[in-house]
Design a binder for these strands. Sequence first.
DNA 1: GCTTCTGATTGATGCAGGTCAAGGGCATCC
DNA 2: GGATGCCCTTGACCTGCATCAATCAGAAGC
Lengths: 253, 253
Amino acid sequence: MARNEVTRIGLDAKFNHAGLRQGLTPATLRKLDAISRLRVFPRDAVVVPQGAALEYVGNVVRGVLRMDRLLSDGRSQIVGLLVPSDMFGRVFSERSDYSIEAATEVTLCCFERHAFETLVRTCPDLEHAVLLAVLDELDAAREWITLRAGATVAARLATYLLMLCRRWPHQTSELTHDAQRIIVNVPIARNDLAHYLGTTVESISRTVQAFSRDGMISILTPLRFEILDLPGLIVMSDNDEFDAASLLAGLRG
Amino acid sequence: MARNEVTRIGLDAKFNHAGLRQGLTPATLRKLDAISRLRVFPRDAVVVPQGAALEYVGNVVRGVLRMDRLLSDGRSQIVGLLVPSDMFGRVFSERSDYSIEAATEVTLCCFERHAFETLVRTCPDLEHAVLLAVLDELDAAREWITLRAGATVAARLATYLLMLCRRWPHQTSELTHDAQRIIVNVPIARNDLAHYLGTTVESISRTVQAFSRDGMISILTPLRFEILDLPGLIVMSDNDEFDAASLLAGLRG
DNA sequence: GCTTCTGATTGATGCAGGTCAAGGGCATCC
DNA sequence: GGATGCCCTTGACCTGCATCAATCAGAAGC
C-alpha cells in the first residue's frame, strides 16, 4: 500500500520537488519553481516550533526531520520522521500541533504556505499530487502506530529494522546488499531512536546487544548493523506482515 | 487544527455524505448520490478484512468503526476509530493493511471504489473535499499517537477523556452539560477501550476506579462518567495542549 | 600527550502494569 | 426459579523496563 514508510533515507542532492514532481504539467512545475526556495538547517535546528503559525510547507531534499510534541513534564514524543521526498508542514492549517526539528543536517525545499495553497486550488494536477502525498503520510502514520503497538522493546526494535529492510527497493543507502549480506543503516542516533520507539536509550542499547548475543544481528557501528537471522527477527517482531521470502526478493530485485 | 479528533459520536440518522458534503457543487453531489449505497452492519461484523482487496470506500453515517491490525501472536491492535462523518477505506489503494470492523452497529454510506476514484479525478471540487478529509484523518492519526505516548495508563485514560470533552462543541451526545455538570459518554466498551489505549481491561478498570476514589470522576454507569475535577484530570494527562478555561468555555458555548 | 564533550554501554533497584484467577452484577433464556 | 452468558471488578503475583548512576569509547580541541 504505502510508497511511504516510517523512515527513509533517499537522496539525490540535486534540487527537486520529489514526491510531488511526477504527474505535474510543465506549467505547474514552472509555477512551483517560482515560489520555491531551498533552505539548509543544521542538526537540531527548530524548523517549525510547536504551536507556531505555519509559514512554510515543503519537502525534504536531504537529511531527516523529526516531528515531536513536547509534553508538560518536559519529555517529548516523536510523532513521525520525515525523510527525503516527504512533505513537511500541513497545507490548509494555520498552526502546527508539534514542532518540526532537524534530526540531522537537512536541506528543505520550502514554499510560502499561502502561495502554495493558492496554487493547489488552481492546479488540479498539483492538488492530486498533494492528495497522494498526504495519503502516503497517513499510511506512514498508521504504520508507525503499528510499530509502537509491539508489546516489548525487542518487538518494536525488530519491527523497525524490518521496516528499514523493506524500504530498500525504493530508496538507496539504508541498506547495502552484496554477497547475501544485509546491512542496515539506522538513520538516527540512539537518543532519537529511543524516543521514536517509545523507550529509553538504555533499553535500546540492551536490546541491541541482546540481538547481537543471540546471533540475530552483528553490530558494525552503533548505527550500522548486519542482519544475520532474518526469520528470527520476523518472529521477534510479532508482526504478521513481514515475510522473509518477499523481503529477500525485494532486496535482490 | 483538527476538525477530526480521535473519537466522535455525532449523529443525524438521515442519509448524508457528511464531511464531504460541504463545498461540493450540486452536479457533483448528484453524481455522488448515483454511486452511493447505504449499508448496515451488526456489531463486530468485519467490513473489510485485513489484506483484502478494497472494493468500497465511504463514510460512517451512524455508529463506530474500528480499524485494527492482527498480530501474529493473536493479539490485535486498534490503529484508529472512525465515527460519523469520517471516511473509511483508502482511495487510490488496492488493499487494506488492517481490518475494518464494526465496534457498534453501524450504518455506512458506501461508494464502489473505482467509480469513486474516477469521480475524484474528474471533479476538482470533490478532490479538494477528499484532500481535506484525508488531512483530518492524518491529524486524527497523529493525535492518536500523542494519546498513546502517555507514559502511564492513567495519563492515557485522562487524555482520552479530555479529548472526548473537547469534541463536545462540534458533535452531540458524548457529553451533556447542565448546571455545571460535565458528563462523558464513552462510545466503546471496556474491551475496545483497553485495546485503544494500549492496555488491558483490568488496568482500565483499576484506573477508572482509582480516578473515582480520588474524586476526579464519578462513575454513573460503566460507560458514563461525570467529571468532577477537570484541572486534576489535565494534570494527570501530562499533556500541555489541554486548558481548563478553554475546555469549559467550549462546553458552555 | 592530556582534557573535555558527546554518545553508547552496563549494572543495580523499584515500580507500573500485564497475567492468571476468582468473583460480582445484570442481562436473557429455558 | 436456576442456568448460562457477557462484562466489569478485585486480588495476588511476577516480569519488563524506566530510573539512577557509573563507566567506557571516540572525536575534537589544546
